[in-house]
Amino acid sequence: MTVTVAKQQTATRLIPQLALQSQQQLTGQLDIQANNGEGWSLFFCVGRPIWATCNSRPVRCLQRQLQRHSPQVEFDNLAIRDTDDRFFCWNYKVIWVLYKHQCISKDMAVAIIENSVTDVLFDILQAERQGTLTFNATPREALTMLRMQIVALNLKNALKKAKQAFQAWSEAGLAPVSPNYRPILKDLEQLQAHTSVKIYQQLVRKIDGEQTLRELADSLEIDCLRLTRSLRPYLQKGWIGLQKASDIPRPSQPNKPPSHRKAAERRQPPLVACVDDSPQVCKQLEAILTEAGYRFLGITDSVQALPILLEHRPDLIFLDLVMPVANGYEVCTQLRRMSQFQKTPIAILTGNDGVVDRVRAKMVKASDFLSKPINAEKVLETVKRLLAVTA
């Protein structure tokens, strides 16, 4: 059965469609397609939802739910093949296998299922607000669905939760904004000019261009509505943009051979960055390191350091201790909070080779401590040693 729903200003047609499947006690799946190309699948057992998935980002959505509710699970090692006819989709099979092998508890599995269904219903409500939807119900063998279900949800409760979330989202003026989009920093100059130093540094540190709004909210342990509402002024001015997030590959077997892209990246000479407000120091290090065969990146503005480092992802970073606005300890602390730089060697540069400074350097997780004035032999010895640890 296929039903085409006329465009509505408010999301009303999804609800009778779900009520129909509940009344008819559908055991199978309801595929929903939006005119913007997005699609979702809701799975029912005797009229009650047991799973839901976004068809364009199933792996990414599963990874988020596992990180949120079962962080002990190593997602990259979940090499579960999609070859069993009992399962209606791969991402549900992952949850089922983890639950049956006691890698996650029943409560964790139920929480993942409940939140997946709520998120999908939210996204469908938002898509219906913006255009037409097509519904297609496909029955499946009842006994198999019964055996494979972990929990059967109350449809009214799940829909009520999704409606409340979308209503709050809309009332905040965010109806056109998808929580599945990735925020990106588009105009750093305007952001820096019109925000405080603290807010600017927080934005640069938090928004890496990779995480969706939902993923970013999870990583910050705050509500997605609260996060997106705080970004709304910058979105409206175009200083922060939104981009569609693509799916990620399914996890494969561990110890897989490196991709051609990663192998090519390793063939390039290591990139060493220096954050120092002294152009002279940067030029000294550049001369020493480029002559030794390394690539070099000099940054003389500590406020601009984070976005530049995020863009270039150096293999090693030298940080000047004494700089205006943000000193080396503060910058080092911010870098270590970011997943991209948690393992990157960071060496503090200073003219004060004291015990207190060395202790503070260890407290902010600096990898080493190098005294000024710059000595070529010490610099090269430090670079080789620190890069050897991460090789």
Rank of each mutant, 00 (worst) to 15 (best):
T2M: 12
T4C: 05
K7C: 05
K7D: 07
Q8H: 08
P16E: 07
L18M: 07
Q21I: 14
L26F: 07
G28I: 08
D31F: 13
N35R: 05
E38M: 11
E38K: 12
W40H: 07
I50W: 01
T53E: 14
S56P: 00
R57L: 03
V59C: 13
R60V: 03
C61E: 14
C61N: 13
Q67K: 14
P71M: 11
Q72N: 10
V73C: 04
V73Y: 02
F75V: 13
F75Y: 14
D82E: 15
T83R: 10
D85W: 04
F87Y: 15
W90A: 09
K93Q: 15
H101V: 09
C103Q: 15
N115W: 02
N115Q: 14
S116T: 08
T118Y: 00
V120N: 05
L121R: 03
I124D: 00
I124F: 00
L125I: 08
Q126K: 11
E128N: 04
F135Q: 10
T138C: 02
P139S: 06
R140A: 13
A142E: 12
L143N: 11
T144N: 09
L146R: 07
R147Q: 13
Q149A: 12
I150W: 08
V151T: 06
L153F: 15
L155T: 09
N157S: 13
N157C: 07
N157A: 14
K160H: 11
F166D: 10
Q167R: 02
A168S: 11
A172Y: 01
A172Q: 10
G173D: 07
A175Q: 11
S178K: 02
R182Q: 12
L185S: 06
E189V: 13
Q192S: 14
S196M: 06
S196R: 01
V197R: 06
K198W: 11
K206G: 04
E210H: 07
Q211L: 15
Q211A: 10
R214P: 02
R214G: 01
D218E: 09
L227H: 02
R232W: 02
P233C: 06
Y234D: 08
Y234T: 10
L235P: 06
K237I: 00
G241L: 05
K244A: 14
S246K: 07
R250N: 08
P251Y: 09
S252P: 01
N255W: 11
K256Q: 15
K256L: 13
R261P: 04
L271C: 06
V272K: 03
C274H: 04
P279C: 11
P279I: 11
Q280I: 15
V281Q: 12
V281Y: 10
A287N: 10
A287R: 11
I288P: 01
I288V: 14
L289M: 04
L289P: 03
L289S: 03
E291M: 06
G293Q: 02
Y294R: 01
L297H: 01
I299N: 02
T300R: 02
S302H: 03
V303P: 05
L306T: 09
L309K: 02
L310V: 06
R313F: 06
P314F: 01
L316Q: 01
M323L: 09
V325L: 09
E330S: 08
R336L: 09
R336K: 10
M338H: 10
M338P: 03
I346V: 15
L349A: 05
G354H: 07
R360L: 14
M363Y: 00
K365I: 00
S367D: 14
V379K: 02
V383K: 01
T390S: 09
T390L: 05
